[in-house]
Nucleic acid binder design. Structure first.
Lengths: 144, 144
DNA sequence: TATTGTTATACTCTATAACTATA
DNA sequence: TATAGTTATAGAGTATAACAATA
């Protein structure tokens, strides 16, 4: 069971590096991590508030506030659903899309720069090993 | 420069998996991520408030509140420094240590379980590649 | 004067509970 | 009745600015 005592440490530190980079870049545009995640979800979806809550793992009341603040900044819009007048569909605006793309581009640059010490084949191996862990985790969610 | 278009994605998803696991375990003990990090820093140090701020990347006023809440729960204590009567040294209590160890143990279990789909040599490779990225990043901090 | 820490204030983020409107 | 979303409220976490105590 106990493989390499350094693996957990290495993955933890790497996760802090990655998340810290994302938070820093978001902060440069006065955005929080959760606001960036919100924009990310909206890039290819137009979900109802309740769906947003499931995607982000937040209570519906939290989503109300989150969308309020994003809307106040012109990053998203609310629209009443055509088929269910209780439901509110959230869309990203052009400004929101632009901001999300800008942050994503800078983020990619930074992570690739961080991985630059590795050779090309090493990066490919890393990518594949990381993908296998993530894929397995998605297929086997922690039941608690 | 653009190596594998999937590397950034893979590392990002992995970082969310790792951080999400830590946040979930912390939450099971009504702790936030930053409170767990606070206890982690205090495991082998007895820093002043200002040093704590540097370790955690937070303003001194944020540290005051953070330590307030941890102290209220009996996880840390404040002591006036012997050599500088302005300075306040923060120590972890027995209860804090115990809680930190419990969470760290569960975290190690969960991350090792997540990495279990990889073979022993694969895990070792992953550990080494991740370590090289983190080490290089520490040696070459983003100047901004 | 400079540094250490706290306080006052404001804002984001989050949840629970109560509410409105719709289904 | 049940569901979708908002509002009211409370608390954690964060920063800026002003402050007190010490160096």
């Amino acid at each position: 069971m106990t493989s390499d005592p350094g693996l957990v440490d290495a993955l933890t530190q790497l996760s802090f590096l990655v998340q810290g980079t994302l938070a820093e870049l978001a902060g440069q545009h006065d955005l929080s991590l959760i606001q960036v995640r919100l924009l990310g979800v909206l890039r290819d979806r137009e979900p109802a508030m309740s769906e947003l809550g499931r995607h982000l793992g937040l209570d519906k009341s939290s989503i109300t506030g989150l969308v309020d603040r994003a809307q106040r900044r012109g990053l998203v819009t609310r629209n009443v659903s055509d088929t269910d007048r209780r439901a509110v569909q959230v869309s990203i605006t052009g400004a929101g899309q632009q901001l999300a793309e800008e942050i994503a581009a800078r983020f990619t640059e930074r992570i690739e720069a961080a991985a630059a010490p590795l050779s090309d084949p090493e990066r490919q191996v890393l990518s594949r090993l990381a993908t296998r862990i993530v894929t397995a985790a998605v297929r086997t969610p922690r039941s608690g």
